[in-house]
Design a protein around this nucleic acid. Structure first.
Lengths: 299, 299
DNA sequence: GTCATTCTCTGACCTTAGTCAGAGAATCGT
DNA sequence: ACGATTCTCTGACTAAGGTCAGAGAATGAC
């Protein structure tokens, strides 16, 4: 990356921190301290929530949350009650007044957004909001972490299940991993392969496996991205990370097969330098086979 | 503005506050509390600065700054010395260690930006940084305030001087306001007219005057935008604000004259619905005359 | 039944980021 | 020369946002 880009990001941080940070924090808080406001927000309108869950999501100390709850209780905004089944756990829900207060925070937040847009004309508003959407999208993409996980890890298993469930929907005649050429994801475990899992805020949102058969090209399997994480360039990132690892492993060719129902994937492969080749295996679910020669300086 | 736009801005605020706010404040501070870091940053590398100036720029209490300086002094990062001429005033400068510490903050800030960009590929980086530039530009545009000021107000006078100085450079044969048709900006004062000044963070960055002669069309004069505030859509905003005020004053036609050297202005007028008309005055500096009929529902 | 664990709460404590009211020294206006 | 003003500093105070070490109640494991 260039120094201009770094400088650009820094300038952006300054401007945004000034314009939004300042307004956001203090504004949103309003009469109520920021900590209380955050908690009120997190508790949310529906149903009682376990305190520990709320605490975990905000990442706060238990003593601190307890104190915040006492303050909110004193103002009649929340009701804390023991959990019906486990009486160690306590649950919290908003009272009527609490819901009103939360709606007020909501209105303040709207007012802040409105104040930001108000001085601009219609065209500028369009441009600002679409640039914001772009920044948000890419910032989200940049917090996604990609790690090598054992295929048996819960997050990996979740991805594999989701992958199978999605193909079951998409493929004519469904999809059963047991009938595919990779009945056992254990093959994607070192030393015979590896498995990448992408996570956003700790939640698994994508995966990709690599088979590293001795004396044969590396093979990409089980590339999947969670529907709500699409558009972040995650598939491309997983793909190039696998290529990089294959190259480091000494492979100079990587190949894969894909089903015709997976149009976006096929486009991705073609756009990433994969060329269609004759079938190199007898995967029953495949319609297309691709191959890419890795140059040492890939990426 | 639409509710989707408001929602967009709010989502942006949340994402950015999480991703940047959190990192920015705590990161940038690092070992050093945020207040000290801000001060260290503001003092800057070159020469000693008056404490009052630094204080004014940060908008902090004098007692608070004094305490922060003691802390920085204790750590050997700054040296506080009396002002050579006025011994009430004290000046502050970074020591060698202070400069090192400031460079460290700088590096941290770079590291933060780098960490943000690192997981993205080259195309995503380009898109992110240009979207950031756009957001920054429009956010800056939206903090510009536009107020009616007396033409004699220092900020107004600054704009008028800058306007004249710039035309002096631009026009063949220079520009002398005394020879123009508006030798006295006092004509842009109620009830004969009005004068708008645009300010960014308190600094004047643009102006526009409106003459409201009885029984004649309103006339726009002295439209100017500071070079460093160009590209913010400020001229357009000043123009439409004047039109709005002219309409409120009961005018249904507004007109203006301009010099051929001011190409951007001429484009703006044409693009804003102004039609070229024959000369309606004998302004010696004008080459083009424009007129626009205001519809009651303008804007 | 007992012991370890889980969960919430309280009390004690800490740092940061301020605000406010003078005190004291120096300078300015006249 | 003298009073008003300017500038910095100190002391006293506040609120927010947290951390840490238990205590006490309930539950789970065996």
């Amino acid at each position: 990356m260039t120094t201009e880009q770094v400088e650009r990001v820094r300038r952006f941080n300054r401007t945004v921190a000034e314009r939004i940070g300042v307004l956001h924090d203090r504004y949103l808080g309003g009469a109520r301290p920021y900590g209380q406001a955050r908690l009120l927000w997190q508790i949310g309108d529906e149903g009682p929530h376990d305190i520990r869950g709320v605490r975990a999501r905000l990442g706060l100390d238990s003593g601190y949350v307890s104190r915040l709850l006492r303050a909110l209780e004193r103002d009649g905004l929340v009701a804390v009650e023991p959990h019906p089944r486990d009486r160690r756990v306590r649950t919290v829900r908003l009272t009527e007044a609490g819901r009103r207060e939360r709606a007020l925070l909501n209105d303040r937040s709207d007012a802040l957004a409105t104040a930001l847009l108000a001085p601009l004309d219609a065209r500028q508003r369009d441009r600002l909001t679409s640039a914001m959407a772009e920044v948000e999208r890419l910032l989200t993409a940049s917090v996604v972490s990609v790690d090598v996980l054992d295929p048996g890890h819960p997050d990996a298993a979740y991805c594999l299940r989701s992958y199978a469930a999605e193909l079951q929907e998409l493929f004519e005649g469904g999809f059963d991993p047991a009938h595919s050429l990779l009945p056992d994801p254990g093959e994607l475990r070192a030393p015979r392969g590896l498995f990448l899992v992408a996570r956003l805020h700790g939640e698994p949102v994508g995966c990709a496996g690599l088979k590293l058969p001795a004396g044969a090209p590396a093979e990409i399997k089980r590339l999947w991205v969670h529907p709500r994480a699409r558009g972040l360039g995650l598939a491309r990132r997983l793909l190039s990370e696998l290529e990089e690892r294959a190259a480091r492993h000494g492979c100079d060719v990587v190949r894969l097969d894909t089903n015709q129902a997976l149009e976006a994937a096929t486009r991705l492969y073609r756009g990433s330098g994969y060329a269609e080749v004759p079938a190199f295996n007898d995967e029953p679910y495949a319609h297309h086979w691709f191959e890419k020669r890795l140059t040492p300086g890939t990426r």
